[in-house]
Design a protein around this nucleic acid. Structure first.
Lengths: 366, 366
DNA sequence: TTGTAAGCGTTATCAG
DNA sequence: CTGATAACGCTTACAA
């Protein structure tokens, strides 16, 4: 498709700092109409227009069933004409509950969480909720500060990418008695709901794969907390059962970059040169480990096999590919959003605890 | 560092779905104290405890200067003892302004925006603001729906990753009269503030680089709207000036994956087989193009040079590296956050329009 | 510097 | 099914 060069808004390029930002006169199809005209319409004005009392307008909007068809029609018409939108703060103040949904992310820089968050937001926004973000930064201290701050907003529900680990925070959230989804792990007693997968099952797949491929001397790189701990323990247990020798595990504080993986690989191989297969906290770490291994003159997978976790969609397409445990992040987010919306609508989701399957994707690194 | 295997909370692994989620009894250093005890404290209770009127408590918290030192001390003590936090909705209802800051992202799946958003959030949260997210999904229709919805929350300020392109939405935002930062481009008349960089300058660097390397027949892959248009126009203009022949440009709807880049490369080379150097909308596209070029038997950069835009930190570390225009995304986000916080505090930032430098990073792909 | 009174815009409650 | 009334918790305006 040859690009047409017609260009209405072309400004002269000075060669310096003039970017001709494209402006668009009107939306393609969507015209906000009066809604976009700064002035704030109050419920009373709508009521006058529809010749009813304010409370009836409120009911027509919140509990349509409580209002007769005729009036409801008049009211909705008046709402449309005025572009009325109720003041969420007044609503929250009176009802004690807002249209906000809290989204707790360890970091918005992590692919997996971000995909889940995006999918979850999509569902929530479609149902008329707004998303408030909280970045816990993988820190308990920060988590404990953040939770009250966000919860002061009286969110109607919350989605947590992960499992809340501090007992105090769990109790705090439980007391709020709002729909809450924890995720990304299996927990026997979630605060409220759970949309997760079994890290343990994932690790089992990895160990079985390593055993099938005939790797006997193995190692692990991961965080020393939360899911990192779960995975390491599971790894050691399953390796024991399968007769694989865990030569060594190294702990890294950060698992967010290829560089972290490079450092960790050199660390673990310096200590445990016999390792022939390596299980890494995630694909970024695994990829960094692979690069560093090659730099040490090792062939991957011939001299060292590497397996990741989480199936990063970017790295999936970079040859030779990292063998990894695949988890449907977007699916988790979507399911979480749907469960929350159901509960917020007074309905009950099919189950309060959902486990997504994990699968092993074999690629070139093992 | 050999991982110690001591493990208090180790549960037996069934081999199925039991993840021993690590629980932590108390925060490391931070104990929210009464704050975490469900009950909501009202300003009146604090006032009683400090033996002042509610309004004085309010002032001690909002305008400390208006309250005498002695009383302020008593009040702050009472606040600490009760764990009081003012109800943000009541505050917003009365004052007409919340402690929310709206964050408009085209997509939270884009590395660059996400980094800026994270850096911006960090600054805002440190100053006591909460972030509400809006995902515009690169769609005008969605943008027009989203903006009123988010603005109904009476955010105190807004950060837009990009420049608002629809005139109607610009006007709407302008009328709100709150601090707003647009970003990621140069605009002569920002709605309020701008923290950007010159896309045009970035493209100039690319063209100069291509000319220096002796590539005469070039092509472009990008989106056909917004910054995509800016870059294509700049590319064509500068190529004209430098004597490079633009053999062809192709437009892609999505620029979010390596796969999109693969498709685009095959498309453009099928149409314009003479192209020797290619400028791509971003590094993901560039990387996909590189992979596809190799699959066609072309050597990169010998047969085809490839340049990206935006400096993805993941791909930066994947050999041979993509030559790219580097932009300090986190810096932009941080600067945006700081400008907003200053304005929200009644101060004026050094400048309302800031331009970050762009630099070319030469790597193996060209 | 401090307090009093009133009201932000909505919805819960209760009466009709 | 509909409406009057009060109240959600705080802060602006004004008075002391």
């Amino acid at each position: 498709m040859k690009q047409s060069l017609t260009n209405a808004s072309h400004e002269p390029l000075t060669g310096a700092t003039t970017d001709p930002v494209q402006r668009v006169a009107s939306a393609d199809g969507t015209t906000p109409g009066d809604g976009a005209s700064g002035r704030k319409v109050r419920i009373e004005e709508v009521a006058r227009l529809a010749d009813v009392s304010p409370i009836t307008v409120s009911r027509a909007l919140r509990n349509p069933d409580m209002v007769s068809d005729a009036r409801r029609a008049r009211i909705l018409d008046a709402v449309a004409r005025t572009g009325y939108a109720s003041n969420p703060h007044a609503r929250a103040l009176k009802s004690g509950r807002s249209n906000l949904v809290a989204l707790f992310l360890s970091s918005i820089a992590s692919q997996q969480y971000t995909m889940a968050a995006e999918a979850c937001s999509k569902v929530l926004e479609a149902a008329g909720y707004q998303v408030v973000m909280g970045r816990t930064s993988y820190s308990y201290a920060r988590e404990s500060l953040l939770i009250p701050a966000v919860m002061d907003m009286r969110p109607a529900a919350a989605f947590i990418t992960g499992v809340m680990e501090l007992e105090a925070n769990r109790n705090f959230l439980r007391q709020l008695d709002i729909p809450i989804v924890e995720s990304w792990a299996y927990a026997a007693d979630p605060i409220d709901m759970l949309v997760g997968f079994s890290n343990t099952d994932g690790v089992a797949l990895v160990v079985r794969h390593m055993a099938e491929r005939g790797y006997a001397d193995v190692g692990f790189i991961g965080r020393n907390s939360g899911r990192g701990t779960i995975r390491r323990q599971a790894f050691e247990t399953f390796c024991g059962q399968a007769g694989l020798r865990v030569q060594g595990c190294v702990t890294v504080a950060n698992v967010h970059s290829i560089a972290d993986g490079r450092v960790a690989l050199n660390d673990i191989l310096d200590r445990h040169p016999d390792i022939r297969a390596l299980f890494c906290a995630n694909d970024l770490i695994a990829f960094g480990a692979m690069l560093a291994a090659r730099e040490r003159g090792l062939r991957v997978p011939d001299d060292l096999a590497i397996v990741g976790f989480g199936d990063s969609d970017v790295l999936a397409e970079v040859p030779p590919g990292i063998t990894t445990v695949s988890v449907d992040s977007a699916g988790i987010g979507r399911a979480a959003g749907e469960a929350l919306v159901l509960r917020l609508g007074g309905k009950e989701p099919p189950q309060r605890s959902m486990l997504f399957p994990v699968t092993l994707i074999e690629r070139g690194s093992s």
